[in-house]
């Protein structure tokens, strides 16, 4: 007798609000996110830029909290403090709250970093690859209990994936303009960064810009929608990595490309990340890894 197929509502819930799994992929996102943050704000958010005691204190707290987030010590609290400071800096830059002009914090990559850090508060990213995990193992060992599982609710990771989809889709929508579709936008970007006002008058070159514009538009749309499907992901992830590598080479994109590629992890099924990690660690580690996720180590 075949089992009744779950309703659409329960399948949707299982894939969103009730979504659970291994927290290792989330931990990798947490670590990469802090490194991207530091790469982005390391120089402009140093004490040399502080204009007063309050700003200096904010900078010290930011680096303390983000360091705790990186190593996974009091992870959720550290993430919340880091996110709160980023939101303050972002609002400060955008709305002039507090009267400080931190124009360095008004760019898209900084907006994405801030949003993702905020969403990480919802993710139990400290349950794996963290000091919190190490402490939990010690406590369990001392009490003679089995170690806590490296599992948790991952609906926050789904929101991070949705955020990246939105970035791609809205970026594609922005390109639905005569300026972009005619190739003119890529031409003017190339002129701004490389050629100056001397764009060669060549029909072939213009055709190349038009083709590049349409390919990029199609790829962004495909990435925005297709990354949710495992079959499409197999092709889209390498294409996306290549695209962002090209951006990184050709344009001053700061950490945007690296961050975007890191966030591809949010689309991958957590079990698949576990399998990949186990494969990397070798045969002996595979079963230990699975047991650790289940909590019967």
């Amino acid at each position: 007798m075949s089992e009744a197929r779950p309703s659409l509502g329960s399948r949707l819930a299982a894939a969103t609000v009730d979504f659970e799994g291994s927290t290792r992929a989330a931990a990798l996102i947490r670590i990469g996110l802090v490194l991207a943050l530091w790469g982005c704000v390391g120089e402009p958010l140093s004490l040399t830029r502080a204009t007063g005691a309050l700003e200096a204190a904010e900078i010290v707290v930011f680096f303390g909290a983000s360091l705790a987030m990186l190593v996974g010590l009091g992870t959720r609290g550290a993430t919340a403090i880091t996110a709160a400071i980023l939101v303050h800096l972002y609002l400060d830059a955008h709305l002039g709250l507090g009267g400080r002009a931190r124009s360095f914090f008004g760019h898209h990559h900084q907006a994405l970093l801030t949003t993702v850090t905020l969403l990480m508060i919802l993710v139990p990213a400290g349950r794996s690859i963290s000091v919190d995990r190490w402490l939990a193992l010690r406590r369990a060992e001392a009490a003679g209990r089995p170690p806590p599982p490296e599992r948790g609710p991952l609906w926050g990771v789904r929101l991070i994936a949705l955020q990246l989809s939105a970035v791609y889709v809205w970026s594609a929508i922005d390109k639905l303009s005569p300026d972009y579709l005619s190739g003119a936008r890529l031409e003017r970007i190339a002129m701004d960064f490389y050629l100056g006002s001397d764009l060669p008058e060549s029909a072939a070159l213009h055709a190349l810009f038009v083709a590049a514009a349409w390919i990029l538009l199609a790829l962004e749309l495909a990435l925005g929608v297709g990354l949710w499907w495992p079959r499409a992901r197999r092709w889209l992830v390498p294409a996306g990595v290549a695209l962002h590598a090209l951006f990184y080479l050709a344009l001053p994109v700061c950490v945007f490309s690296a961050l975007t590629v890191l966030l591809y992890l949010a689309f991958v099924e957590p079990a698949a990340v576990d399998r990949a990690l186990a494969r990397l660690l070798g045969p002996g580690e595979r079963e230990r890894g699975r047991a650790s996720v289940r909590g019967d180590e």
């Binding site: 907006a111 939105a166 970035v167 970026s171 190339a190 002129m191 006002s197 764009l199």
Partner: peptide
């Protein structure tokens, strides 16, 4: 408003550049 995000990366560079 600046309260809402936009994802329109690299829409501005090169605007007003002149060729000819």
């Amino acid at each position: 408003t600046r309260w809402m995000p936009t994802w329109d990366m690299y829409a501005e560079p090169g605007l007003e550049i002149v060729r000819g």
